[in-house]
Design a protein around this nucleic acid. Structure first.
Lengths: 218, 218
DNA sequence: GTCAATGTTTTTGTATACAAGATTTCAATT
DNA sequence: AATTGAAATCTTGTATACAAAAACATTGAC
């Protein structure tokens, strides 16, 4: 599939928003970006349109495009929704999951634990995402899986922060174990509840972190 | 807020997709649309970009934009997700709903029943949407409310079909009653379950309808 | 010194022009 | 007659040009 310039540009701008190169409130100057990417304004505008739709950018008519990082309140809301989506995926997956997927899930979890033991943050994220993605897909509902993956991706950069909490990774691994067990034994409601809490605690930890950062000078 | 041409054009094309003027697989010809709307290709392209992001249109590079109506499977999946989203909204709203919203809800329900009695389909839809939207918003989670409303809107045209079932409207009204009761008494789980079933049954009815249509010649 | 008004400069939104890839047509060959 | 290949045509993607609105600055009045 031959990509358009607008596609790659959108991804790159998105990347810069995620990694903080663009902060909240920054205006995306079309001509400036056009120069930077060595293209005309047209593909830049297309890229901005997409970012606007995905919510990373606010488009004010006749004024321009402004980077819109979600504030603490919206983030907590998003984590709450993520928790509920995962719970639904888990409830459905408990009834529908295949044996192959169950072993794949255990394998992903094993690699996850290994990454934790080696303090390899990057591969931890990779395997953790894989773990969750399996559950999304085993919900047997492609639309749900897609929506869950989309929100997961959007929250990914913020998830990273909660790593800082001592012992969180170990606890997280224990939760993964419970999840696998519940899915294996087909306990729909337990799978839902464990998954919901597993994600919700991330939101709470994040909340705490925000509060701490606010109270800590410098 | 001063709208751009691209905004209104996107809405109009969306409308035509919903009402069936554009069928699945139709290509959206840029020059043709530009002529029809009396503008240049630029705003048309912007509009198409948006529709692509919302999933109503598939964008194939160097080939064009094609209308993509969801098939039966995807529709059932979407209804399932809608049911779960409503359930979540209900569970949260049962704890968070305000007294003012409760009376507003009862009022919307009353108008809904009135519309049913008068067989006024249009105002039924209007009031039904209002009823559900109140619940979304009373979840206390703006992000969730937004997502729920978005999916609700996308399913709206298909919801219309299930009207054909005899007695469905009356049953639906009874379900609304149960929902209001559960929310009023703060029974979170019951609110969730009633709402889930209320929406899920629509998906099932829709499923039946599809099967019937397939078996019925002409 | 402050504020308002007006003119200048940016910047967005739209139109048009151009280039490259896709599709169609039509003829030539098997 | 069917198939292949090349030319012609159409369509998308990108660049540039232009118009209108918003931001900015300068000047003048109080």
């Amino acid at each position: 599939m031959n990509k358009r310039q607008a596609d790659t540009i959108a991804e790159q701008i998105e990347e810069r928003i995620f990694d903080g190169s663009f902060a909240h409130g920054d205006r995306l100057d079309e001509v400036r970006l056009a120069e930077q990417f060595g293209v005309s304004r047209t593909p830049i505008r297309e890229a901005i349109q997409r970012l606007a739709l995905s919510g990373l950018v606010e488009l004010i008519p006749r004024r321009g495009a402004f980077v819109r990082q979600p504030g603490p309140v919206e983030l907590i809301e998003m984590f709450e929704v993520m928790a509920e989506l995962e719970a639904v995926c888990g409830r459905l997956a408990a009834r529908r999951i295949s044996d192959a997927a169950l072993t794949e899930l255990a394998e992903a979890n094993r690699k996850c634990q290994q990454a934790v033991a080696q303090k390899d943050a990057d591969s931890y994220y990779l395997e953790n995402e894989h773990f969750h993605r399996i559950i999304y897909e085993q919900s047997g509902n492609g639309f749900l899986a897609q929506e869950a993956a989309k929100l997961h991706k959007r929250l990914q950069p913020f998830r990273r922060l909660q790593l800082r909490f001592r012992g969180r990774m170990a606890q997280s691994m224990a939760e993964h174990e419970s999840i696998v067990q519940a899915l294996r034994s087909g306990e729909a409601e337990r799978a839902a509840n464990v998954l919901r809490d597993h994600v919700a605690v991330q939101g709470e930890k994040f909340h705490q972190l925000m509060a701490n950062l606010k109270n800590t000078p410098g």
